[in-house]
Design a protein around this nucleic acid. Structure first.
Lengths: 142, 142
DNA sequence: GAGAGGATACTCGGATAGATGCTGTCCGAGTAACTGGGG
DNA sequence: CCCCAGTTACTCGGACAGCATCTATCCGAGTATCCTCTC
């Protein structure tokens, strides 16, 4: 079980946009060292999940769809990580657990605990904890 | 982020062994409909993690290495799911979060919450909750 | 009856291959703003 | 000054390829038990 790079790309890009507080181009985000085209897909997921708003055409780009204190890590995680967490295949086999398989419920509960933890942190929280000297976030990209 | 079939195979096999309370053959476990050779690899992981004890040769097979109430779902999960949960790639890029990346710590904490939940359930707990009528676990394999 | 040696029944573990999802790339389509020319 | 058409600057989204991991299969190696033969 692992968290994909999509989540990291998404969080970092949202932090960047939030800090700039203006419409940000895909090219600018990709300067973090992320594959531009791949990042584009991640940005589209975030747009579809209503975390970002995008505008196409000249002067287009991405802005937050709501304020940074209303965007949690859980929101981002749910937007980019698939929902295929666990599916008991009892139907397909002679399942040990009979018809009322509890395993699936237990794993879902555990996943919920995981999400609860992520829900505690907003983008605003993380930005306020940043060391402004070390972060390139504070500097304009040249 | 998803849980692999290995975990399901492992839990179901351990439940079976625990209920039989004797040395169980790989072939018998594979009758659940699991690929025999693949299951063998999962069983080896469980053996290496000291959850099962295996004996080779005639009259060989698998037994629990400790009682069912001392085996939690967390034990099983850790035995079969890899440890590559999340690794911040900040070093490889101009990371938004500077040197003190909190993201990694947050995800580890969330994972810990996930494991805490799994830790609440032992094999004994799950077996005691089984509906004995519905479960093939109670019947001898013919 | 006892010991030796072979047959048997298992797990171990490496090699391999297909399936699936992650990561990255390419490119045409669509869209909105800007620009320049004609009325 | 205004409108229209063309250009430009973006995102959207489908197609594709490489790769890692998951899942599955195959098979020889190793090992412990059982059986049989011989004395």
């Amino acid at each position: 079980m692992r968290i994909s790079k999509k989540t990291e790309y998404a969080v970092h890009s949202i932090l960047y946009i939030s800090n700039k507080n203006r419409c940000v181009l895909l090219d600018e985000l990709a300067m973090q060292g992320i594959s531009r085209e791949y990042l584009a897909k991640v940005m589209r997921m975030l747009t579809k999940s209503k975390i970002l708003k995008s505008s196409v055409g000249v002067n287009g780009g991405y802005v937050l769809a709501r304020t940074a204190d209303m965007i949690t890590l859980e929101d981002i995680f749910n937007a980019v990580e698939g929902e295929n967490f666990y599916k008991c295949e009892a139907e397909a086999r002679r399942c040990v657990l009979g018809e009322d398989c509890r395993l699936s419920a237990i794993f879902q509960d555990a996943r919920e605990k995981f999400l609860e933890e992520l829900r505690k942190y907003t983008i605003a929280d993380i930005i306020s904890g940043l060391d402004s000297e070390l972060s390139w976030l504070k500097a304009e990209v040249t």
